[in-house]
């Protein structure tokens, strides 16, 4: 409850700026229309017009909210919640490849981190490649992945998930290498005094010790994975998904559709990261590692 006031303040500030921005940006088009029709607009008429244009430069918040309702809740009420025009359908398409890519990326990241921590050759050689992989703009490499995978007969969900994986394994590798190395000298010496095998050392000490790092990197990985899924939807010809809605909206100047897809993507990311946050809190509390 203590947090409510600052959060509300920020939200209100955002709305005020947003409305002010849409009035300022859409005013020119409203004046233009009025001039051609040969009428003079009062300030009130001008402001009202800026908030109700069909293709505004910056749609007002209520326009976006209306569009979002029309493509989600309203369609559910009409029994068409999963039709191709529904945002729920597109969100689901994006979510499924986000989650698949996230799982693949996390698995790859953990596997690489284990290799780096336990294998000297990998320790010396893998990290530069991992970092180099992230310096390539994803927009440049995404179409390649789609094309190459298509050529070997893989299409649909998996190519998009691969792009998500490409983005999401990175924070997991970095976080888990640090996490698996977090036990101190004393704890490792102690394992040695018991003649523990490398496997026992991993399962009983290194892996549990890495959990705080694991959850933190998963949060970043989840957000990166969503970005990857959206980017992956762009070169596929905008068939389905939030990325497709963004691209489609920009083809036809449907700014309201673009903004509603953007906000849905942001809300989706917030939910997914929040979900990991809840699991993190419960798990770390039970492990006695809550900070």
């Amino acid at each position: 409850m203590r947090n409510l006031f600052p959060i509300l303040t920020v939200v209100i500030a955002i709305f005020v700026l947003w409305y002010a921005g849409s009035v300022a940006l859409n005013a020119a088009w409203a004046q233009d229309k009025a001039k051609r029709a040969g009428v003079e607009l009062t300030t009130k008429e001008l402001v009202l017009d800026t908030m109700s244009q069909k293709k505004p430069k910056l749609p007002a918040p209520h326009q976006v909210a209306e569009e979002m309702w029309k493509t989600t809740g309203d369609m559910v009420l009409k029994g068409r919640g999963f039709s191709k025009r529904s945002l729920i359908y597109h969100t689901w398409v994006t979510l499924s490849s986000t989650l698949l890519g996230f799982v693949l990326g996390t698995a790859l990241g953990v596997a690489l981190a284990v290799g780096i921590v336990y294998n000297r050759t990998m320790d010396m050689s893998v990290m530069p490649w991992v970092i180099a992989s992230q310096t390539i703009p994803i927009l440049a490499i995404a179409p390649m992945i789609i094309v190459v995978l298509n050529a070997i007969g893989i299409s649909g969900l998996l190519p998009k998930a691969v792009i998500s994986m490409y983005l999401s394994f990175f924070p997991v590798v970095v976080g888990m290498v640090k996490g698996l190395r977090s036990p101190d000298h004393m704890q490792l010496d102690q394992m040695k005094t018991w003649s523990a095998s490398p496997g026992q050392q991993f399962w009983k000490l290194r892996l549990p010790s890495s959990m705080p790092y694991f959850f933190t990197s998963m949060k970043i990985a989840m957000a990166a994975s969503l970005v990857g899924a959206i980017v992956g939807e762009l070169p596929t010809g905008a068939v389905a998904g939030l990325g497709a809605r963004l691209l489609g909206g920009s083809y036809y100047g449907q700014t309201i559709q673009i903004w509603s897809a953007l906000l849905t993507a942001a809300a989706l990311a917030a939910c997914l990261v929040g979900l990991i946050g809840i699991v993190q809190r419960v798990v770390l509390k039970r492990m006695g590692m809550a900070s």
């Binding site: 004393m186 704890q187 010496d189 102690q190 039970r286 006695g288 590692m289």
Partner: peptide, 17 residues
């Protein structure tokens, strides 16, 4: 390797989990 001794370190080093 024959586990001939138990070793107590300066810090208790108990696992919190």
């Amino acid at each position: 390797k024959a586990r001939a001794y138990g070793y107590v370190f300066q810090a208790a080093g108990l696992y919190p989990w």
